[in-house]
């Protein structure tokens, strides 16, 4: 689409940079097995090797290659976060748009359920549910998707309600258009920009949330490489960081690598979201 390309060309530097970063993450996640020099969870050398060839980022407490684990972590952490966000979105946006369009008892019930779910902080709720279900990837994805879909529901319902007050919806209704046409052709194109921005924000949230649970030891379980649990595993090393020698410094910085990987991706996504919101608010004027 040439229109989108021109839009991209006019993007500010920060957004371009952020998009490039996201692309790097995406490529890393997609081609992890080919990019990683060593297998994900195999012991390939002595413990705590310093940053030097062939273990460019050293080895961890078990002697696994840190760089390889970071690369595989991209696939696991980002992949699961993305799957969860997509699920939360399908659930939340579908019910939200429907609740706004249909109204009546469906809207009332859905809104009350969401009110109650949102009255409990998600981390606390997730911890409660994970106590019961135990820590499995499926449980993790489902629990977070359901909890997060409440936010998506609220937003898409509000956005759709704003659109539904417009006269063009009345025109469509007077013409006798069906529900499907109204949602797909009238509401959805107008809700796209805020929903895309929300997708970015929700992804950040889910991604941080899963990493936080992993960091607490309740998310992805070893030996799966995952950034949150990598921070947890190497956390204690930070107290030994000192900048007297290369080896000591790289040793202590170990927990900052996966944490930084998480931070950079969320910053990049947030920048793109800012830009999308800016562009779409400009289009309306």
């Amino acid at each position: 689409m040439p229109r989108h390309l021109t839009l991209l060309r006019t993007a500010p530097l920060s957004a371009k940079l952020a998009l490039a970063l996201i692309a790097v993450y995406a490529v890393t996640a997609l081609f992890a097995p080919w990019l990683a020099p060593f297998p994900e969870s195999e012991i390939v050398g002595p413990k705590y090797l310093p940053w030097a060839a062939p273990h460019w980022l050293g080895t961890d407490a078990l002697g696994r290659d840190v760089l390889s684990r970071l690369i595989h972590g991209a696939r696991n952490t980002v992949g699961i976060a993305l799957a969860t966000t997509v699920l939360a979105f399908l659930l939340g946006a579908a019910t939200g748009l429907l609740a706004a369009t249909v109204g009546g008892w469906f809207d009332t019930i859905a809104s009350r359920v969401v009110d109650v779910l949102m009255a409990i902080p998600s981390l606390i709720f997730a911890l409660l549910i994970l106590t019961i279900t135990g820590t499995s990837v499926i449980a993790l994805v489902l629990v977070i998707a359901v909890l997060d879909s409440t936010r998506v529901f609220r937003l898409s319902r509000a956005v759709a309600q704003g659109i539904l007050t417009m006269d063009y919806i009345e025109v469509a209704r007077m013409r006798g258009e069906g529900l499907g046409w109204i949602v797909r052709r009238e509401v959805l194109p107008n809700a796209a920009a805020p929903l895309i921005a929300e997708f970015g924000l929700r992804f950040c949230f889910v991604f941080l949330f899963i990493s936080a649970l992993s960091f607490l030891g309740l998310g992805l379980q070893p030996p799966t490489a995952d950034w949150g649990s990598m921070v947890r595993d190497s956390a204690k090393l930070i107290s030994f960081a000192n900048f007297s020698s290369w080896q000591a410094a790289t040793f202590g910085l170990a927990p900052l690598l996966p944490a930084g990987a998480i931070a950079i991706l969320t910053v990049a996504v947030n920048m793109v979201v800012d830009w999308v919101l800016h562009v779409s608010s400009g289009l309306r004027d």
Binding site: V231, G260, I262, N270
Partner: peptide, 17 residues
Amino acid sequence: LAVISFPEYFVAYILIL
């Protein structure tokens, strides 16, 4: 914008460091 995007433990470890 940067701080919002950081996980809590990232900020914590930087402060510790």
